[in-house]
Amino acid sequence: MAKLRLLNGKLIDIIISRLSKQLIENHGEFSDSVILGLQPKGIFLAERIKSRLLELSGVELPIGYIDTTFYRDDFRRRDSPLTPNSTNVPFIIEEKKVILIDDVLYTGRSVRAAISAMLAFGRPSKVELLTLIDRKYSRDLPIEANYVGKTVNTIQSQRVIVELVEQGFEEDNIWLVNQVK
């Protein structure tokens, strides 16, 4: 099984800083802005962005976690069963500028489900998407990210594996793996 390292911990850290600065550029004072991390791994990146923004601009953004399980359109069409995680949005989304954060953007179906899930908490004034890895040319839906860590060209048989220290790994790594069928 061929395994290619896309990003290591140091590069991820640099990218988090760059993405945070792009957010500062676009959101200015961050009045009415909130962060929503997608379960399961987007929440870790969302926490990292939140603390980096605090370091860089002194603003502490409200953060929530959103789980898409009950909103997915591939429920019952998958080989493996879906396991729900907790959704925790401790604020009203009404009229807020939402920054959705996920680890990998692939078909766009998770993001579509996340937008549906988010709308149960109110009508945001604007929604943006931030992703660490953008798998180009593999979208099933017309969804694109506003902030991208790294763009990679992949084929369907490949998988992107995200390992973060928050999950219990010794160091951050993102791999591209060729699956052997």
Binding site: F70, Y71, P84, N85, S86, S116, A120, F121
Partner: peptide, 23 residues
Amino acid sequence: FETADQFKAVINRSIKKVPSLRD
């Protein structure tokens, strides 16, 4: 029980509905 925990959170929101079983 663990799945019910998540649904209990859902039915305590203002929008108490999810589209999981629409088909």
